[in-house]
Design a protein around this nucleic acid. Structure first.
Lengths: 242, 242
DNA sequence: TTTTAAACTTGATATATGTCAAAATTAGCA
DNA sequence: TGCTAATTTTGACATATATCAAGTTTAAAA
């Protein structure tokens, strides 16, 4: 269960990938795009539960998620665990590893998933020749910083129900960008994983979901979630008691 | 009080700066180093309370702190505030701005401070010519990601006293690296600011400090802090009830 | 299909931290 | 130097979330 399924690695083709605008929205000529394609390898399927990389692994590549859903998590020395993010198709993971050439978190597939591997030092090389590519890499890294700081805000100042609302709104927006329904989707993670991400216990997550449902803002049955009133959710996120 | 003191901008000289090993520990030849020096401008003194940049400002440069102490904070639409970091000499701030060419947080001097301004697009240009410089920029960006994710762990899973212990240990280590005493230093920020950073109310910060003092792990009197037992603090950080 | 384990919900209760308030200390300003 | 405002500490009490527990539902395995 915890091994990626071995499979033939294929050359990926960003040039024809429909996620390109999300993943690497860079204006490159055909020739330049071909050079990018040449770097990138499409990896085999990572089955639900399998690990893309783990904390301590040597860092060599970033990964673009082609299909599926991942979580990243860090573990304390004392066994404490924190989910640091949920990543979906078109998003790039592995950037934590750049700083010391070692991954500092685990990346785990939450459903059967495919990724494109982008060897980092070759990406750096190409970035030196293609300024728009270099610029885009910097934006991706910075975007991750901004994202993390917004989670710090959430963890540091929001109450349970607000955290849930913020979480659901964020998922909704990301599904929307990908052409999926922003109001009706499946949660790919357990209550426990949501709780870890939001700094809450799973029981609190469950209760907060029930409350949001009680308030007619969402319908939730198991992993199926429907947003009934987005503006209501946004208002809920804005409440501050703390 | 909220304006930087205007002053002559001087060419900075990384080549002779004693913070270089912290700030830009890159192996460059003299000629290469001169090119880096050419980018960087030393800005006038930012007085205590003045703002280096604020959320919404156009992003144009990174800043290396030469002397002094800053905090960065983000503000919600609904006025909620979160301190996202405290930065000291040799550290680089402003990286949040890369993603959309706009700063997403405020940077405020907590004491009279000097910074070196590093125009970002020129840094990118030079990075394309000097691979070690490019690599270092990537490491700095990634280090910020790792740092933020560790704060997420702290905010998501630690109790008040543990958060304080982790915070003090972190400060201690950073002072040590700079050649200052790791066991005796001044806090540059208020209890309220510490609380915002750690997701606690100022009263809770005050109480937690008192408890740590009660346990003979630290002595704290106002902003003066002494660590009496580092290993005890580390143990305290490791306790997990949650 | 049946069996078994995992995930989820809900209730009762405990506890850590927040809130409110007052007093003490410190720092900035005239 | 004295005055005023800001910061800090500490106490009493409130409350959000954690903890413990039981029962239910769902998903995985045989």
């Amino acid at each position: 269960m915890h091994k990626p399924v071995p499979s033939n690695s294929l050359k990926a083709a960003c040039s024809t990938c429909n996620l390109r605008k999300l993943c690497l929205p860079v204006n490159l000529s055909n020739i330049e795009m071909a050079r990018l394609d040449a770097l990138i390898t499409r990896k085999g399927v990572y089955r639900h539960g399998s690990i893309l990389y783990r904390s301590g692994d040597k860092f060599q590549a970033l990964y673009a998620i082609r299909t599926g859903f991942f979580k990243t998590q860090i573990l304390n020395e004392d066994g404490r665990e924190q989910v640091t993010g949920f990543q979906m198709a078109g998003e790039i993971i592995g950037m934590d590893g750049i700083s010391n050439d070692v991954h500092t978190c685990d990346a785990v597939a939450l459903e059967d998933s495919e990724v494109c591997e982008i060897p980092f030092s070759r990406l750096e090389d190409l970035g030196r020749e293609l300024p728009p590519l270099q610029r885009h890499l910097h934006r991706i890294l910075s975007r991750e910083i901004v994202r993390d700081q917004n989670i710090m805000l959430l963890l540091g100042s929001m109450r349970a129900e607000e955290r849930l609302a913020a979480f659901l709104i964020n998922l909704s927006q990301r599904f929307a960008v990908r052409g999926y329904s922003p109001t009706s989707f499946q949660l790919r993670m357990t209550r426990q994983e949501i709780g870890s991400y939001l700094g809450l216990k799973l029981e609190t997550v469950s209760r907060a979901l029930s409350q949001l449902q009680e308030s007619k803002l969402i319908t939730v049955r198991n992993r199926s979630l429907e947003i009934l009133c987005l503006s209501g959710l946004q208002a809920c996120m804005g409440k501050r008691t703390r």
